[in-house]
Design a protein around this nucleic acid. Structure first.
Lengths: 349, 349
DNA sequence: CTGAAAGCGCTTACAG
DNA sequence: CTGAAAGCGCTTACAG
């Protein structure tokens, strides 16, 4: 393979000059630069990121730790992060924890050994357990998407999950539904649930505990199972909130299997606005998060901020506390799966 | 941060000895080893993969290039590859090409600059265009999942797509369907289509070109659109083959929207067996590929083989040709979306 | 504006 | 079994 030395030799300069050319340092004379550039082109030289990383301490690699690839919500986020990061020349080292804290620990440790320039950590339900380790690592990081309270002075970019729940609840409330079920990934989405309850309480509606179907499996199938159970036991229910779209998709299936038409017999609303939600038939009404902005904010929290995350340790926590957590507002996306109680004016079944 | 020098100092040895301990070289005396290990533990030392990579030429990083994260087929594959690779200590540098050849080129080049130990490249429809570059890179690679013919002496691990199509066609043929539509990502899945035609031809059934719905968008929605069109124009159709499950899921929706019951009015079969297929209602009949094996074979093609991919350049192409492509056999997974023509004995609509 | 030196944190032969 | 030297491919001050 061709190294900086080969280029220097060919251009008749020293490798330091080649380095200056590569790094666009304006100290090189025009014709020297031209000679070097030609040599680079002729040799097809590309600097080793490895060697550079060792010399400068910057690897141009960002560690990305996510819970799973099975939920489109994360893959959509990853895709955006990749796009955003690559314009700055950063690559992604991907780890999925699958909710296993021990694996996560190992992954974090390995990531550190790779000298990543930054770490984007998604909440997989075990963040509190990992936060100490992440701090020790000494690599700039940002915690993403977390629903639970996070210790002060932790850089966080997340969504307002409570507000998302609120919007979902308010939508059903405005549609005059009173008999409402919840299909939820609990306790992970506790905050979303509380938000929904808050909105419903404003209409003097309470969610009866028996109508809350918690699911252990966070997949679509989990939503199907829980919804089948709840809808069978509580046929009087006219609307259901799923704490995330994957579950909502399962609720849609369960309703169909039970012969309940949507939205005429049952309104269903989710949260997240994953792309299959819009493609479902009927298209799912849901609460969307601005995942593009999440990606942007996470990246700038890591790279572009002043002070950058790396330097932020020198800033006294008291000075940053307020700005450490960025919480992005959700918005309601009304599609086909919700309607006023009693259906859309369609009579009978 | 703590380096090998710190450990050496603390243990009262030279860094070479520390290196010997770390790398489990059996040349170190027991008590020396103990001293070093204690120093390592006390200091919390972990060797820099970066420095090691520069010194040895092995980074313990594998580049993974996939078309998209939007199809569960790839995310399931990635997850398995990650699991398989991590047992050998390898990490993943992820790139999604999104079918854009220019981006792919850049990504490949960057990957090379990172000195990855190997490259797992999924066919995104532009492989032929990238193969030369990949060869020039000089990094061991394996091409995965490709449906099209690949030049000799290219290490390939893929699925027997033709056979998958054949199994899908044969299943419908055995169910006595004769009026068959195809919803397909074409020409990408041409081979799957030909396989299906072959099976049907055995029953003297031809797929009329007008009943082939090609979709530009490879998403579920693409399947929905194409199926809506085909089923509306050709109501006599009793069964549909989708060239992949994501499309099949869209076909399921289209059928429901058109009031056609599945499988009574219409049988639907897909290919891939992504997990949402099993979770759909009705659960999708499909043709499954052994993705666990694909992951295993890809990894061992890269890492475990003798000669390993890295060394394979020294082996004359003629000696390898035959063993260069591994093609994994699919199998039929019968679920709820297919039935004998005329339905399951249910009369009327 | 260009060149010689030292260093990033490791490993690989090679003497002792 | 342990230590001194050179090198992986780059960059960063520092002289000229």
């Amino acid at each position: 393979m061709v190294t900086i030395k080969d280029v220097a030799l060919r251009a008749g300069v020293t490798k330091q000059t080649v380095s200056n050319v590569i790094n666009q340092r304006p100290v090189v004379k025009a014709d020297t630069r031209a000679r070097v550039e030609q040599a680079i082109a002729e040799l097809g030289y590309t600097p080793s990121l490895l060697a550079r990383g060792l010399a400068t301490g910057r690897t141009m690699m960002i560690g990305l730790v996510v819970p799973t690839l099975a939920n489109p919500f994360y893959t959509e986020l990853i895709t955006r992060l990749e796009r955003g990061l690559e314009v700055d020349g950063y690559g992604i080292a991907l780890c999925t924890t699958d909710g296993d804290p021990d694996r996560a620990t190992k992954q974090l440790l390995t990531l550190k050994r790779r000298y990543i320039d930054g770490l984007i950590l998604f909440d997989d339900g075990n963040v509190s357990r990992h936060l100490d380790l992440v701090r020790q690592l000494g690599v700039p990081f940002v915690l993403c998407g977390s629903e639970t309270a996070i210790p002060d002075a932790t850089p966080v970019v997340t969504f307002d999950h409570g507000q998302a729940g609120y919007l979902a609840g308010a939508h059903l409330r405005d549609l005059r539904h009173r008999e409402i079920a919840v299909i939820g990934e609990l306790p992970a989405h506790e905050v979303r649930l509380r938000g929904a309850e808050r909105a419903l309480a404003e209409g003097s509606i309470a969610i009866r505990p028996a109508r809350i179907g918690a699911t252990p499996t966070k997949s679509q199938y989990g939503g199907f199972e829980a919804a089948t159970r709840i809808l069978t036991d509580h046929p009087e229910v006219t609307a259901a909130i799923a704490t995330h779209d994957l579950l909502a998709l399962g609720v849609l299936q369960a309703a169909a299997a039970l012969g309940r038409r949507i939205p005429d017999d049952l309104s269903v609303i989710g949260i997240d606005d994953i792309s299959p939600a819009g493609e479902a038939r009927p298209a799912l009404t849901t609460v969307a998060f601005p995942i593009d902005r999440l990606a942007e904010e996470a990246i700038s929290a890591l790279l572009g901020s002043s002070p950058p995350a790396l330097a932020s340790e020198s800033v006294p926590p008291s000075a940053r506390e307020a700005s450490d957590v960025i919480s992005l507002a959700p918005h309601l996306v009304v599609r086909e799966s919700t309607a006023p109680v009693g259906g859309r004016g369609i009579v009978g079944a």
